[in-house]
Write a protein that binds this DNA or RNA. Sequence first.
DNA 1: TTTTATTTTTAGCCTTACCTAAATCTTGAA
DNA 2: TTCAAGATTTAGGTAAGGCTAAAAATAAAA
Lengths: 220, 220
Amino acid sequence: MELTTAEENYLKAIYHLSDGGKKSVSTNDIAAEMNTKAASVSDMLRKLGEKEVIEYRKYYGLQITESGKRHALQTIRKHRLWEVFLVEKLNFAWDEVHEVAEQLEHIHSPLLIQRLDSYLNYPKFDPHGDPIPDEFGDVRSRPRVQLNEMEVDQTGQIVAVKDSSAAFLRYLDKVGAYIGARIKILDKVEFDGSLEILVDQKKTLFMSKEVACNILVLQS
Amino acid sequence: MELTTAEENYLKAIYHLSDGGKKSVSTNDIAAEMNTKAASVSDMLRKLGEKEVIEYRKYYGLQITESGKRHALQTIRKHRLWEVFLVEKLNFAWDEVHEVAEQLEHIHSPLLIQRLDSYLNYPKFDPHGDPIPDEFGDVRSRPRVQLNEMEVDQTGQIVAVKDSSAAFLRYLDKVGAYIGARIKILDKVEFDGSLEILVDQKKTLFMSKEVACNILVLQS
DNA sequence: TTTTATTTTTAGCCTTACCTAAATCTTGAA
DNA sequence: TTCAAGATTTAGGTAAGGCTAAAAATAAAA
Ligand SMILES: [Mn+2]
Ligand SMILES: [Mn+2]
Ligand SMILES: [Mn+2]
Ligand SMILES: [Mn+2]
């Protein structure tokens, strides 16, 4: 069964907001995430329910079905593979890929995505550190914590970012934070949650809590 | 000014049917080319007229404008660059690329297409031998004749195909005709226009007029 | 247990891009 | 010059995806 571009986008949002089907999602949450209105969401939920990619009971929220998860993961897989392609092959910066990938993820061609995966050598993570589901929808996820949740003297490695906006990513470029960087918490200010961290054993960096909670770390 | 996917497709069809703005095109021609109905075409022509990519006088056909030509050539450029990418980088066969390129040509991102062009080393022709317009819309076209119009003993080189359908291209693969092949007309049957040709000085091939008129040759 | 605030859905409208059927224009044949 | 065939456009309708405003249901507070 084929989904339209709009349906794929809704399903992706529902998948993310529900944390892969675990949490329940509200109509208003979806509307906020998709920059649309609650009335439009209600309409779409009815359609997605008819296509059985969600289980929908009016006024009582929704549950993503197994079929829905497969569709969502397939779209996420395509999005992230294209992002890798843009960075690795076409020399895009990591803050330039998201918008284009939002378009490319809706190209329908199983052969294309299979060949792209092989051409890129079956990458496991996208340029923002997010895991790429395999062709069966399986995701190999690593245990990650938000940088703001770490304590003084703890160490780790930056493995992903939560915010993929150009503004945030360019800020990280400027201060020298990148995926793979080894870090150590030097100081944590109680008052505002801001941090002082050591990057790659040589550079110290101050950052606000707002920045820190968008950086994901693999602790060591 | 931005065009929708449907508008880009209409404009491309108009550009091709009018032979780059030279010939006049009828509503029915467009409907046939696009597998749609004349009424839908009329509707779209009005819209394209309002956007000034064509000059449209009701009942008297249309003229593609300079702006319209630029848009059409841009879409054609994207289509053909993607076809090269699919064949050169992702190992698609030349009969597998057209449908996917029909989708990819509508991705909007000037940076993407500029980088793709550079990544592919600024190719001049697509896998079917069609010229790729440069970023300014300039096309370097070669003088080509249809194989069926050649006379006995004339020689040349296959440089393009007119029909990009999988059925036709797979037939050419099977009989060993390919872009770049050197050919010589050995015999031409008056009755049905069928041909006997010599390929690469070693293999003889019989083909119907219908096949021959879809093969384009650079005469030598 | 009411009442109120909030969330969600429905009703009614819009645009794009299709469709069929009917009306209208152009043109070639008589 | 007239008229019918053929081409084209208009009228009216559908489906997807949006919107605002109004109605209805749920959840929270009194
Ligand atoms: Mn992204
Ligand atoms: Mn990403
Ligand atoms: Mn093509
Ligand atoms: Mn081609």
